[in-house]
Design a protein around this nucleic acid. Structure first.
Lengths: 144, 144
DNA sequence: TGATATTAGTTTCACATGAAACTAATATAT
DNA sequence: ATATATTAGTTTCATGTGAAACTAATATCA
């Protein structure tokens, strides 16, 4: 049980630095190659997994707020990567899916992202890899 | 070894969501109680540990960029929490330290931050706690 | 039914942020 | 000594961001 603060040993701080470093490294690659921002990529990633979903669904899956989703969606529509329809039963609800070129981007970026993860994970032993999975799962369930 | 992407299982994404959730939860408390932002708090935290240091040193310790440090420092000086002098040997280099009220803030917020960490950690078994430390250490050493 | 509340998503506003250009001080090379 | 490069930190600019107010559609209640 800690009683004094050292930033370098402070868990939330270390997590934040680590996470930013990793996200930035990956984002740098697809931002440059495909001109899409991190929030835009997250929207694409969700739509690559599940098509014909609402903006709200995307917000929930990505843990982004609805403003961020709205903006990312609009940019993606403008750049032709995403198609928006509206639900007949509820004309407020958007029905989003990737366009042909959106799918192409997804199919190119997804492996790049996975490669990155694999490259990281390979630097841990198999045992550490599963420990990490497990711990992350536990941490996600923690109440703050 | 993964070959398909599921956002919910994608390590960088999970790390990012977890880290944001934790940082936000803590920041919400001191932002409200002490009107200091997360970058400002990080600067204070470094100066609480080591006094009479330069802006560059703070930037390095906090993993913030120099622009962010410069702005945080200026705000903290304006609000009277921080004192800036300049080094005689090199008049460019600032020599930063907490003012009396800056130290008071540090002495109030630091325990709050530690409490938070302890409260989180207590939800893990002792074994998981040390595993987490260990894994984090390994992840920090990974090259991207 | 009409009146009120809720929900999905957008817009606006004020503030945060990072990159690049800049200033001033110091170090290095000629 | 004088020019050139480097370093510490700041400012500017263009963009990103979240909260709150807003619009439009649907649901609920009396």
């Amino acid at each position: 049980m800690k009683t004094t603060l050292k930033l370098q040993e402070f868990l939330p701080y270390r997590l934040s630095v680590l996470s930013n470093r990793i996200s930035r490294a990956i984002a740098d690659r697809y931002e440059e190659q495909f001109q899409i921002s991190l929030p835009e990529w997250r929207v694409i990633a969700v739509l690559g997994e599940s098509s014909e979903v609402s903006a709200g669904f995307v917000a929930q899956k990505t843990a982004m707020d609805k403003v961020a989703v709205s903006r990312a969606v609009n940019k993606l529509i403008t750049s032709g990567l995403l198609i928006r329809k509206f639900a007949n039963e509820d004309k407020r609800r958007s029905v989003l899916s990737l366009s042909k070129s959106g799918s192409e981007v997804y199919n190119e970026v997804a492996p790049l992202a996975i490669d990155y993860e694999n490259k990281m994970m390979k630097q841990l032993s198999l045992n550490d890899q599963s420990l990490l999975e497990e711990l992350l799962g536990k941490l996600e369930k923690i109440n703050l």
